[in-house]
């Protein structure tokens, strides 16, 4: 099984996790910038965090044979702290970096006006830097938050295929499918979403535009939930190719829209969409023409 975990917070995980993930078949991850559990009080704290995502953590992952990418944004929780708003001015610098494959996690936490203002600005930045967006949906009042999120995405005018709406469940998936965005599911050890419910959702709506992640972080979580979901799919009658599509080709297709996936060093035998990868040589003149700004 070849696995790309499209949402996992490796800075909070151990080297044992990296080894277990490699053994299970994980060869690539995306680590979205998010809240650290302890609120930050200054912009400088974000500089060091973003630098760590693009520096030390990428190096650490490589030691275990795993290619590490990041998404960069001011997360919804800290969007409410005026001391952190200066992060928005830093983003243009980080959104130009190699291996930054989306703007994220953006979205709502408590659905405040501040959160909405910051989300709109960051959706605009995604357009300016030609990046897809990874949107977090709130844990509380999820349906209303998801609906409002999709309205805002529509108002800003981002193409829906460049937007991933994450942490979905049975109550929010149809909203996202109807909008034409990518659907992300975080499979946890407890109630939010489990492997069996995940497969039931796949049974009902198919394997298009869907990503499965562990969202493992410093909370109770399991970095092998992608692998466990693959096993549950196989037990439910899906083929190896179906599993490869959900756990590898789909994340490559979504994040490959950035033109900045760095999968050269990973065993990528198979029919992934080669034209979406940032390989040794620039793909086409068109692929670089949009990067003037």
């Amino acid at each position: 099984m070849r696995i790309f975990d499209p949402h996992i917070h490796m800075t909070s995980r151990t080297t044992d996790d990296y080894e277990a993930m490699y053994d299970a078949g994980v060869r690539a991850v995306v680590e979205p910038a998010f809240w650290l559990g302890q609120p930050r009080t200054s912009v400088g704290s974000f500089v060091d965090y973003f630098d760590a995502l693009l520096g030390w953590e990428r190096f650490r992952a490589a030691q275990f044979g795993i290619t590490h990418h990041a998404t960069i944004a001011l997360n919804p929780k800290e969007a409410n702290d005026p001391r952190c708003l200066g992060v928005l001015d830093l983003l243009p610098r980080y959104l130009e970096k190699d291996g930054v494959v989306a703007v994220g996690e953006v979205g709502f936490d408590s659905m405040t006006d501040a959160e909405e203002t910051v989300m709109v600005r960051q959706l605009e930045l995604a357009g300016e830097h030609d990046l897809p967006v990874m949107v977090h949906t709130p844990h509380r009042d999820k349906v209303a938050g998801t609906r409002r999120t999709l309205e805002i995405v529509g108002q800003v005018g981002l193409p829906p295929e460049r937007v991933l709406v994450d942490h979905l469940n049975e109550n929010t998936i149809d909203l996202v499918d109807d909008a034409g965005c990518w659907a992300g599911f975080s499979v946890y050890p407890d109630t939010k979403m489990d492997e069996r419910r995940m497969v039931a959702i796949l049974d009902r709506r198919g394997l298009d535009r869907v990503l499965v992640n562990s969202a493992a972080d410093w909370g109770r979580s399991d970095p092998l939930k992608t692998w466990r979901t693959g096993r549950t799919m196989l037990a439910g009658g899906y083929t190896d190719d179906d599993v490869d599509r959900v756990l590898w080709r789909n994340p490559v297709a979504f994040y490959g829209q950035s033109g900045r996936l760095l999968l050269d060093d990973v065993a990528t035998a198979g029919d992934y969409e080669g034209n979406t990868l940032q390989r040794g040589e620039p793909v086409t003149a068109a692929a670089t023409a949009g990067e003037e700004g």
């Binding site: 040589e281 620039p282 670089t288």
Partner: peptide, 15 residues
């Protein structure tokens, strides 16, 4: 320089 430096590998190549 900062912007150009960041995208240099994507434009010129890598490896």
């Amino acid at each position: 320089l900062g912007r150009v430096f960041a995208r240099a590998a994507r434009v010129v190549g890598r490896g």
